[in-house]
């Protein structure tokens, strides 16, 4: 039986990410997970100064010490 359009869309999105073994139940979880993450992403600022560095930075010497 063919997927309903929403499930087909989710399955396509999951497959595009290499998640092609997710069952219908897993796809429901995938959808809820994405929705929850979208709420967090919407809160991230979009006006950070261009030169502002990430909190975690690469240190060239670290592996040599």
């Amino acid at each position: 039986m063919a997927d309903d359009p929403k499930t087909a869309e989710l399955r396509g999105a999951a497959r595009a990410l290499g998640l092609d073994r997710l069952t219908d139940e897993h796809l429901g979880q995938f959808e809820r997970a994405m929705a929850a993450m979208q709420r967090h992403l919407q809160r991230l600022p979009r006006d950070l100064p261009p030169a502002q560095e990430p909190a975690m930075i690469f240190c060239a010497m670290a592996a040599f010490e």
């Binding site: 999951a14 979880q29 997970a33 994405m34 929850a36 993450m37």
Partner: peptide, 13 residues
């Protein structure tokens, strides 16, 4: 189910 849902949250970031 709970672990899978929480961990899938990072898939589309």
């Amino acid at each position: 189910a709970r672990g899978r849902e929480r961990l899938l949250a990072g898939a589309t970031l």
